[in-house]
Amino acid sequence: MIKVLPSIDISEGKAVKRIRGVKGTGLILGDPVKIAYNIYEEGYDSIHVIDLDSAEGVGSNEEYIKDICKIGFKWIQVGGGIRSLDRAKKLISLGVSAIILSTLPFINFKEFKHILDEIGENKVLVSIDYDNDRKILIKGWKERSINAEQAIETINSLNVLGIILTYITNEGTAKGVDHKVKTLVDKIKGIREYAGGVSSLSDIQFLGSIGFNYVIVGMAFYLNKLREGRLGEDI
C-alpha cells in the first residue's frame, strides 16, 4: 500500500508549483492556508510543505506553516532552509510532525547530527534530490554533490525516520516518474517516499509496487490529473 501526500510549496506568502524549482515557472495557486484547508476537506489527512523562500535564504513563510498546522492534519512534514537547531525546534513547536533536511546532512554533518540528537531521529526525514546522472543536488539545487547511492548509505548509518527520493529531472513537470528508481528504493532503511514527475494513478501504483510507502504529488494534483477523493486513502 502507498499513501498520497499532496504538496504545498510556499513563496512570498503564496502557494506555488514550480517546474524543476525555477522561480517564475509553473503555477501561482494563491493562499497556502486556504489551499491546505481545501485539501483537508477533500479527505487528505497528511501533507507535505516546503518553504521555498527559506530554502533560498530570502525570507520565511513560518506564519503560514503555523496556520496550516492548526487545520487538523494528522501528519505534516515540512522542509526548506532548515539549517540550524533553533529553526528545527521552532517548526516542531508549531506542530510539525517531521522536518525535512536535504542540504545540511551533506555539508554540515555535525549540525545535522546535533539536530537529530536534540529533536529526535523519529522527527527527521532526509530528502535526497537527484538528477538523471544519479548525482544529488544541494543548496537550493544549485550545486551537485555525491551520488545518490552514497547519500543513501550515509543516511542509513543513522536512525532517521526515512528518506524522500526526489527526482529533480521531472520535478514539477507531471511527465512521469523515474522507472529506474527501484535500484535506489531497495537500499533505503526506514520510511520510503518519492517525489518528482508523478502524473497518473499508474505512476502511483508503480511506486507502491516497488516498495515506496508514500508518494508526494504536486503539479498533476493541481492540474486535476490526480485529484480524486479516494487518493486521500491508501492505494
Rank of each mutant, 00 (worst) to 15 (best):
K175F: 15
R83F: 07
Y44V: 09
S60R: 03
Q205S: 11
L85N: 01
E118N: 06
G57F: 14
M1Y: 00
V185K: 02
S11H: 08
L184H: 04
E171K: 15
L201W: 01
L207P: 11
L158D: 00
D67Y: 15
Y64K: 11
R192L: 09
G13P: 02
V198C: 05
G211P: 11
L94V: 08
Y194I: 06
S84A: 03
D186K: 06
E193A: 04
I155W: 00
K113C: 01
V215S: 05
S157A: 04
T25D: 08
L161T: 06
K135W: 10
Y222E: 03
S157F: 02
N108A: 04
I152V: 05
N224Y: 06
I191L: 10
G197D: 15
R134V: 14
E62P: 11
E111H: 09
D234N: 15
E41G: 05
V49W: 10
Y37P: 09
G197K: 15
Y64H: 11
G13N: 03
E118S: 10
I99T: 07
K34A: 04
C69E: 03
V160D: 13
L94A: 04
I128L: 01
E42D: 10
L158P: 02
N108R: 05
K17Y: 00
E193V: 03
W75V: 12
G120W: 04
K90Y: 06
N224L: 13
D9Q: 02
F212K: 14
E118M: 07
G13A: 07
E63Q: 10
I76C: 10
N213Q: 07
E62D: 13
D45M: 08
L52H: 13
L165M: 06
H114I: 15
E233Q: 11
G13H: 05
R144G: 11
V181D: 11
I152H: 01
G30Y: 10
F106T: 12
P6D: 14
V16M: 08
E42C: 13
S54C: 15
Y222W: 00
V198N: 07
Q205W: 14
I50P: 12
L184P: 10
D45Q: 12
N108I: 12
Y130A: 14
G43I: 14
I136K: 00
R192D: 12
L52M: 14
F212H: 09
N132V: 15
S200N: 06
I128N: 00
S97A: 07
L27D: 01
R83D: 12
I68T: 13
G26P: 06
G26D: 02
V78G: 09
K110S: 05
R227E: 01
G59L: 10
Q77T: 03
K142F: 00
A195S: 14
L231N: 03
C69P: 09
S7T: 02
E153H: 04
G176N: 09
K189A: 08
Y40L: 12
A220G: 00
